[in-house]
């Protein structure tokens, strides 16, 4: 009847819950970085507690400063510490565990759920993505099962979950669209994108991780990062940017 009830004795140590690709159980023994809002339940072990401390106020300050090299995302992460079982979920996405062995992997920030202290986190050059370096385990989610492909490959930015070992992608624009763009007066075509002409182009040896679709979350950090870069612009450039933003807003209101 219904579902089999689980408890600390029957929960997996480090695996998806039985028959459930959408929830994952971690047996906590050491510090674990967890993205806020992804933990759905926990059993503290042996009458103890599990502490979830903000990165700014943790007792593990120096370890955190060494491992978490991203000021932009620091408010979205906590360190879980203690003994027990922690169950994680993410919007009903599939959750998978990955092992890195002295490797590097870049993953969409919103799809990264947790990573252990053997790994080091850095911001990717591509906005909205985070890079993990070192040896350890991490958990990432995807809308539907992950699809692994090898470069050379061009992918839709929204379908991209991450990539490992290969160089960061270049942006590729569809040749037909480019020809059209170059043929017209510069800027007159602004906003005439179909959404498919921009692709990420992967080359070299490695693996690219894809998902079947993405319900795009508005990532507040992409905005924050753009705002940070605005300071490099001159007054004329800022006015130009202002008019581009106005045009984009007008376009969206029509559509």
């Amino acid at each position: 009847m219904g579902v089999e009830a689980l408890d600390p004795a029957t929960l997996p140590e480090h695996d998806n819950l039985p028959g459930n690709a959408y929830a994952y159980c971690v047996r906590l023994t050491g510090p674990l970085f967890v993205q806020t809002g992804r933990m759905i339940a926990y059993y503290p072990a042996g009458g103890g507690t599990i502490r979830f401390e903000p990165l700014t106020a943790t007792s593990l300050g120096s370890m955190v400063a060494e491992r978490f090299s991203s000021p932009l995302y620091s408010r979205d992460w906590v360190v879980a510490n203690g003994q027990g079982h922690v169950i994680l979920g993410d919007r009903g996405y599939d959750i998978n565990s990955y092992d890195l062995d002295d490797g590097n992997l870049t993953v969409r920030a919103s799809n990264l759920l947790a990573f252990d202290a053997g790994l080091e986190l850095k911001e990717s050059i591509i906005p909205g993505f985070l890079t993990l370096l070192g040896t350890g385990k991490f958990l990432a989610s995807s809308s539907g099962p992950v699809i692994f492909v090898e470069p050379p490959v061009r992918v839709d930015p929204e379908a991209l979950v991450g990539w490992a070992d290969c160089p960061a992608p270049a942006q590729h624009f569809d040749a037909g669209w480019m020809g059209h763009f170059l043929g017209a007066a510069r800027g007159a075509l602004f906003g005439t994108r179909s959404g498919e002409e921009r692709q990420y182009d992967f080359t070299g040896a490695g693996t690219v991780l894809l998902q079947s679709s993405e319900r795009v979350l508005e990532d507040p950090h992409v905005l924050q990062r753009l705002e940070g870069e605005v300071r490099q612009l001159g007054t004329g450039q800022l006015q130009r940017l202002g008019s581009v933003v106005q045009q984009e807003i007008a376009q969206r209101q029509q559509g």
Binding site: G2, V3, E4, A5, L6, D7, P8, L17, G19, N20, A21, Y22, A23, M39, I40, A41, Y42, Y43, P44, G47, I87, G89, R91, G92
Partner: peptide
């Protein structure tokens, strides 16, 4: 149960459980 199969977690004396109200 939204987002996937429901998860049943047993509570017994000595094994309390903490749950996110949104889940």
């Amino acid at each position: 149960s939204m987002g996937g199969p429901p998860i049943a977690l047993r509570v017994a004396p000595g094994t309390p459980l903490v749950v996110d109200p949104d889940a």
